[in-house]
Design a protein around this nucleic acid. Structure first.
Lengths: 230, 230
DNA sequence: CTGCTAAACTTGTAAGACCAAATAGTCAGG
DNA sequence: CCTGACTATTTGGTCTTACAAGTTTAGCAG
């Protein structure tokens, strides 16, 4: 028994899916059927399906036959949550992710300035207003995240949207700490305003620069808050 | 039984790790011990540990008690391989990832132009030479990937390095097809040369532009090749 | 005290059984 | 003929048991 039985089964279906013989939405054979086909026990089949499920290739609900799933970027990044959080537990890792987020968001700001439609700008304006009128920390952070997400949406690429949302979620703590360190939310809103202004003017460099400064400032405030805590 | 048992167990240890009560390298309780603590069967415990393992929070070898692991970005992105490949099976998904890669690589080119040291540029030069002297498709693709990775390394952030490597891997097929479609590798090398020139001149905009054109060209060639295949 | 061997322990793999929940097919009533 | 409730089937989730394979440890011999 060189190869493990459950790996054999998992690989078999993985190949079927990746080669296109099984398309998203297709039904898989029943568990008991697979058992017979591979001459395996139930636990082997279950471990194989469990593995594929964790990889996002299948979805299975109780009572229904498992189906090949159409993976969403949201789901894909959700897989990372655990290990990402673990990674960012080290200050070094958190710094790296802040840096990575900066590259992403600056690029997104650039794109937004380049290609934002009238409608996009209206949405951004509304998001900014909501951010400005936030009174408590919780709603401030929420509208803050929403504003950044709206910038990501301008690019019309679900990957950016989900990546932005995921990063916002992972770095939420940072946002909370740095916002709480501010005596008022005004300066952050002002920075958001500058970004939106640049986008409205279709001034790419200005938008990138404004976003850069904004993120640097947020990160600075965060590390300051961390220092004060110790 | 609202929450599934294995999820409950997984969450428990996830919290222990994330809160720092369990540090990397620490031993976890034995499976039998966990069984008793949670009044669960062995399969539930195993599924929980399996899930945590997939998330990269712990490693377990046969015979030895599982240990909390220090997650690497490489490992984190490796988790995604399966679902990413599935996602990019759809032409739409592939296009989105190409687009996302473009934003990343253009940003990296920008940074490289901004902050490349003499040493970095020497490394880039060597990588380019290797790319230029490649004779067969396989070594050409390999040196191509290496050149892009070298650009990512300039930023001195492991996240970019691993992300770049992961994307290169996922989009390898694209590179192969578009390279094979070229009668010669010359034009690609020339585009690489232009990028390196811009970095050497510390001309940020020119570097970004050169990278943009390069990636657009590669993508164009790829879709052309796909069309010809049908 | 040191080094080796063997027992004890732990995980990996596998089979099979049970229950609750959800689906799907069937049959009775309108 | 259509509709709705009921039953049979199928699944996921869980537990138990068993053996194989690797690791740790403890004791014994030198």
């Amino acid at each position: 028994m060189a190869r493990k039985k459950y790996q054999e089964i998992a690989e078999h279906f993985e190949l079927l899916v990746l080669s296109g013989k099984l398309k998203p939405g297709d039904r898989l054979p029943a568990e008991r059927q697979i058992m017979e086909d591979f001459d395996a026990g139930r636990s082997s089949v279950r471990e194989a399906l469990f593995s594929l499920q964790r990889q996002g290739l299948l979805t299975s609900r109780p009572g229904a036959v498992p189906r090949v799933s159409t993976p969403t970027v949201d789901g894909i990044f959700a897989e990372l949550s655990g290990s990402m959080r673990h990674y960012m537990n080290r200050p070094e890792g958190l710094r790296e992710m802040q840096d990575a987020r900066a590259l992403l968001e600056i690029g997104l700001a650039r794109r937004a300035a380049k290609m934002a439609s009238e409608e996009d700008i209206e949405k951004l304006q509304r998001a900014l207003e909501a951010n400005r009128s936030a009174r408590d920390l919780d709603s401030f952070v929420r509208t803050d995240i929403a504003f950044h997400l709206e910038i990501a949406r301008v690019s019309k690429n679900p990957v950016f949207e989900s990546l932005n949302a995921a990063l916002s979620d992972w770095l939420k703590d940072q946002r909370i700490k740095s916002s709480a360190a501010n005596t008022s939310f005004e300066s952050v809103v002002e920075q958001h305003q500058r970004i939106l202004d640049a986008i409205r003017e279709k001034n790419v460099e200005k938008a990138a620069d404004a976003m850069d400064r904004h993120l640097s400032e947020v990160a600075r405030k965060y590390w300051q808050a961390v220092l004060n805590q110790n």
